[in-house]
Structures are given as C-alpha cells and as structure tokens.
Amino acid sequence: MTEKQKPLLQVRDLRTYFNVEGQTAKAVDGVSFDIRENEVFGLVGESGSGKSVTALSVLRLIPNPPGDIVGGAIHFRGESLLDLPWAEMRKIRGNRISMIFQEPMTALNPVFTIGFQLIEGIRLHTGCSKDEAEVKAAEMLDLVGIPDGLRRLSDYPHQFSGGMRQRAMIAMALSLTPNLLIADEPTTALDVTIQSQILELMLEMRTKTDGASILLITHDLAVVAETCQRVAVMYGGKIQEISEVIPLFEDPKHPYTQGLLKSLPRPDQGKVRRLPTIPGIVPSILHMPPGCKFADRCPERFERCDREEPELREIEPGRFCRCHLHDEEGRS
C-alpha cells in the first residue's frame, strides 16, 4: 500500500442531485475519493447521507428523472466513466464493476429462476454457450456456499432464504471476476448471525477470485474495523473524513467520526450499555445548513461553522478531514 499505487477508481467532485417536487436535493455534493487496486475501501455514514447514491453514480444507475449526475468525474482504470457511451458503460457493468444491493428480498427478479438470472449475465459478457454458462453458474453457487448448486439453479428467489439470496447475489456479482465490487450494505437486511458469514464470504471470495477491490458501504463502523483498509466517512452528501482504518479508530479527527465511534459498543466494556447516539437528527436534505452540514449536532460547534463550510483538506499524509478545527485558523 505504497503511495505509488495507481488508483483503480478515482472519483472527483461528484455531484448527484435529485429533483424532489420542484426542489433540488443535493444527495451527493462534491464527493472525491480513490480506491486502489486490491483494497477494501469503506464508506460509512448514517442512513440518508448519500452513500448509496454515490455507489449508484459510479455505475451510472441514477434514476432519471428525478436524479441526475450534474458534475464531477469518475475514472475507472483510466477511463472516464461519465463520458462513456451507454453501450460501453454496459460492458463495464457486471463485468468489470459489479454491485450487491442492500435488499436481497427485492433485488432478484421474482419470476425468473436463480439460474436464469445468473446465466443471463455470464452469457451477456462472455458470449459462451448456455451449457457452459450453466456449469459456471453452478460452480459459483457452490463457491458461495450454496450446496448442490446445479439443482438450485432451477429454484426461484422466493425459495431461498435472505442469506442465501445474498449469497446468490454475490455469486452473480463475482461470476465474471470484476475488478471492483460495490457492496451496498450487503448485511443490513440480514440476521446478525448471517451478517458475519456474508462478510467473511465476501473477503474469502476476494482471494478465491482475482482479488477484486471492494467498495463496502455500511453504517456500521464495527464492520469497517473488521474488513477495510481505508475508510471514508460521509455526512450530508459530503465526505467528512478519509483515513486508513487504524489511525481513524485510534484518533478520529472529525467530531462526527468521534460521535460515531463513541456509539460503538466496545468489547472491553463487558456489559452492553446503552449506546450513546449522536444527539439530533440528520438535517432534511432539502434544507441543508449553509455552513458545516454537521454544525447543528456538533459538540464543538463555534461561530464560523454556521457561516462557512469547511474544506476537505489533507491534515496528515493520507488523512483528510472537513472541519474548521483542523485548518490553520482553528477555533479562532
């Protein structure tokens, strides 16, 4: 993980806006980050902070209307995704970048068999025969821990449990050895016991296949600690802090990150006590404050926070933070 590594995915100043009943909702407003080769990159934040929209923007899967990517650039292996014609974009989707969604219950088409939906993607990108694709699909199911894969291919999604569906989704996403796997809260909708299984599976699959990078979206910092190398913290459509995982946990810079960490249950504390949550609520996306988005809930808030939005600046090598506390003027 040296600085020389060329980023696999480079997102710069991404802006994705939605039109909600005539008003503009800036769901993602100037997001920049890099994902390197062979890296697990975490994106954390409360629900509604724009994580999913960021991920969907990378695949250009923003529903239009009401949404639109209004600015920024996304480079994937040197190619500018936002400038690609749709036909070229489709060749990347599912093939070089694939995605796993939060809701395994609805993400699969209920009227087609698992096999149909797996084979469809394989054949689309490889152009192989139906039989070959079927063999490959069955193999993938076995690989993700669905035994008797060949027989299960003819099952419908509703015959699978939630965890199994998510496994099938992973099989689908990894069947073509993509360079980047985007996992949008892959475990949120699952039982706690299944959650770690699925996470382990994802990491395991990464080594079994060609070592894809993973963009792991979650609202759970514990998951990040277990799996990621670097992490970005999002709030109000903006990235507030980017850091390697260990420094972030040891010394969070942004008050929001500090708040998130405080709300984590600690294994060393023995008894489960009531989680301290960050007081206040996420501001409505239509009525964002003009200054710092987190100012309303920030324990460190001072006058400048309401007036002026801080910049995301590199405060240590490889460490970025968007907070007035960490610029030259500081609290003055």
């Binding site: 969907l56 694939s98 995605m99 969604f101 209920p110 469809e120 993607g121 689908m172």
Partner: peptide, 22 residues
Amino acid sequence: GADYVRTAFAKGLPERRVIFIH
C-alpha cells in the same frame, strides 16, 4: 421502479432486455 430492474441494469443488460423481459 422495482429493485430487481436496477439489479438487471447493474448486470449490464441492455435496456430492451430489462424492460421487455424482466
């Protein structure tokens, strides 16, 4: 507007196939 349509697009399927098959 259903989720599975988004999944189908995320697989790289062309619009026609997503609409008229899925």
